[in-house]
Amino acid sequence: MLKINNLHASVEDKSIIHGLEMEVKPGEVHAIMGPNGAGKSTLGYVLSGRDGYEVTEGSVELDGADLLDMEVEERAQAGLFLAFQYPVEIPGVSNMEFMKESVNAIREHQGKEPLSAAEFLKKAKAAAKQVQLPLDFLKRGVNEGFSGGEKKRNEIMQMILIEPRVAILDESDSGLDVDALQVVADGVNSQRDGERSFIVVTHYQRLLDYIKPDFVHILADGKIVKSGDASLAHEVEKSGYSFLGKKYEEAEA
């Protein structure tokens, strides 16, 4: 489904990712862990096509299509979703209006009829309920005045409505208490249908107790240095990133 081959990327001429390889098959959950500065967030931005994140080498395929050749919105329409670590506030644009526009743009791309206002409202209400956001959050400006946890839940709500092919969750657990973490994880788990895939980027093993990964990759220095199953996450939890060498041991101390 998603194939990343020898990906090299840089930001402001500084190389951040060099030689990343990864393949995500339908229905799989891949966790990417790694120390600070390993390039975890950069990966999400590169895949979604943010300005200033330049791919210098390698290729990425989504369902056989060249992802890197697409515009940001085309990638989203093709089924790529990024849950932001720090979602931006857009005052004045209502959450509802925004999500309806998003869902219908994607539906249009899939050759489906746009949802009517009533149909959409019904879905949106259900999604809000699922992530435990009060309904008035639908009317408020996008992320406007939301707390950190509310923003994260708003991201998951969008994911539920958009129904992407591949979702990248960029540290969706950071800054959350246990209850909120459960809500985020439930939201993700509810979308696991054997077809949809997830890339869960996280610094801590905690989230992976709730979202069971099929694979765990350790990202360091812009490439995957170690891969394994869920037990690798526990190993990291227990002994940190010391196996990567002294540099990371100190950074984590």
């Binding site: 096509g49 943010r50 940001v72 919105e73 989203a76 932001f84 925004f98 743009a105 996008v142």
Partner: peptide, 11 residues
């Protein structure tokens, strides 16, 4: 904000 909207598939 524009990037955010684009990542949600809005033209």
């Amino acid at each position: 904000a524009l990037f955010y909207l684009l990542t949600r598939g809005v033209n």
